[in-house]
């Protein structure tokens, strides 16, 4: 009979290191996605590094719960959303000070500049949508995640996900229209 020591049941340090390495590798691979998601969820560029780090810490903590057969991005989005929401609540409690974004340095080619401006406009328009609705819109309309999956990741009923999406789109339309009007007024 083969004796099974209770120590065999415990995860060995080597296994932990492996899982940590796997987690780090995933984080490294999805770093750009994490950064962009946090930006889309309203994190300022000066805070995005710290929050991305918090996403990594949370990912590492919950790595054992992640099912590798499922796509990682919705899972990461769920973590990023919770961290961004907690950060927003904290920021709202603190004394507000101007959220100054560092200026861009160096010349930009026309095309890059235009693309940058467009992206900035999308972020600004998204900023006008409350975070719970914005998360649904970003996940579905930018990350191409099905509404059912969105509902599951954000732990909301399917009906709520649909109604948030509908409302968020209306808000996005209104925000873009307002911004375009403002831009036209500035040009004149």
């Amino acid at each position: 009979m083969v004796g099974v020591s209770h120590l065999q049941i415990l995860p060995s340090p080597a296994r932990r290191v492996t899982s940590d390495e796997a987690c780090l590798e995933t984080f490294q691979k999805e770093l750009d996605y994490v950064y962009r998601t946090l930006r889309r969820l309203g994190t300022s560029s000066s805070e995005v590094e710290d929050l991305a780090q918090e996403v990594f810490l949370a990912l590492r903590r919950s790595w054992g719960e992640y099912d590798p057969d499922r796509p990682i991005r919705p899972y990461l989005f769920g973590i990023a959303f919770r961290i961004a929401a907690a950060h927003q609540r904290k920021r709202n409690r603190e004394v507000a000070f101007g959220n100054v974004e560092p200026g861009d340095s160096g010349p930009w080619p026309d095309e890059a500049l235009q693309s940058k401006q467009t992206r900035a406009m999308v972020l600004a328009a998204l900023e006008r949508i409350p975070l719970p609705r914005r998360a649904v819109l970003v996940m579905h309309d930018l990350d191409d995640v099905s509404v059912a999956e969105v509902a599951s990741v954000l732990a909301i009923p399917l009906f709520t996900a649909y109604s948030r999406l509908r409302k968020a789109r209306r808000e996005l339309e209104a925000a873009v229209r307002r911004m375009l009007r403002e831009r036209e007024t500035d040009v004149r």
Partner: peptide, 18 residues
């Protein structure tokens, strides 16, 4: 979504590299 907003979202779809 209107075509303008759809175009904007499409422009934002690509993820910039850090």
């Amino acid at each position: 979504l209107s075509p303008e907003v759809r175009a904007l979202l499409d422009a934002e779809r690509d993820i910039p590299v850090q």
